Amino acid sequence: MELSLDGVTFALDGDTLVRDLSLHVGTGQIVGLVGPNGSGKSTALRCVYRALRPTGGTVLLDGRDLTSLTPRESARAVAAMTQDSSVDLDFTAEEVVSLGRAPHLRGNRTPSERERGLVTGTMARLGIGHLAHRGILTLSGGERQRVLVARALVQEPEVLVLDEPTNHLDIRHQLELLALLRGSGPTVLVALHDLNLAAAACDRLAVLSRGRLVASGTPEEVLTAELLREVFGVRADVVRHPRTGDPQLLYVLPAHP
């Protein structure tokens, strides 16, 4: 499924958080949103998964206005894992992951054998099968993060929206998660802070600054020393990864006064 943001704007109390954002994510692509804190990444994502309604512009799924879909239709098409995802009740990890099937169930119908297998298989892929019967509130931040990613994947969305999915994860699980996304199938729009991870995981990057799109293209096209200086305020050398050829950034610490 193709995802398009066509001139999306969001303003609140006279402050424009996202301004005239146009972005296209092709079917099966992974596009990363990157930018400094406060650049509008999370606000843009919230417009995609309908937590916010744009004050201007349109979000389109295969050319269809997202707002024309019913909540159930959009929940079947778009799954999200947000920075503020939380579970206040002490469900088991397996129960939390199973909640991803809610948009597909009607009434009191219980999950089918296929759906139970989907939950079990997805948890195994994310290395959390052994946590199935643990209470979600007893898990570490990284374990809980992987449970929430599993919940989104079990939803079987055509578009997956992830806001900083590698938060709380150690480096091994960061790499495993991003590798899983590359083979998961859905169209993916993901906000990432780590530019080296973004360069390795994403087909294209979109750079936001103060709510505006300032650059878009492949990681090699976007991640230049000039852009890093102008947008992020840092100095860095851009080199190629010796194994993959992906651009990687070597940051230069500012000189002490």
Rank of each mutant, 00 (worst) to 15 (best):
S216W: 13
V252M: 11
T82F: 06
A200H: 05
L178D: 02
A201W: 09
D6R: 15
L17S: 10
L195S: 12
L228V: 12
L23K: 09
G183M: 01
L33G: 03
V119K: 10
V147E: 01
L213Q: 15
T187R: 00
P36K: 00
L195C: 08
V78P: 02
A200D: 06
P186C: 01
G183K: 00
T138P: 01
L205W: 06
C47T: 15
G38D: 05
T224S: 14
E73C: 08
R146D: 10
A51G: 04
D246F: 06
L5D: 01
G185Y: 13
E2A: 08
A93V: 07
Q174E: 08
A225H: 14
L160K: 03
S39W: 02
A93I: 07
R101S: 05
A201R: 06
Q29P: 01
S42L: 04
A200W: 03
L253I: 13
E115G: 10
S74F: 06
D90N: 15
A11R: 08
P103R: 03
M81F: 08
G135F: 06
E95Y: 12
A215S: 08
G63M: 14
V78A: 05
L180G: 00
A75D: 07
M81D: 01
G14R: 12
H173P: 01
L139Y: 02
P242L: 02
G135T: 05
A93W: 00
H104Q: 07
N37Q: 10
A191I: 04
S184M: 02
L5S: 02
H130R: 14
L23Q: 04
G121E: 15
N167A: 15
R210G: 12
L205C: 01
V149K: 05
R235N: 14
T70L: 06
R134G: 01
I171D: 03
L227C: 10
T138A: 15
L105F: 07
E73A: 14
H168G: 02
L153D: 06
R144G: 11
R182W: 04
V96L: 08
A215V: 05
L153Q: 07
T92M: 07
A236R: 13
E113V: 15
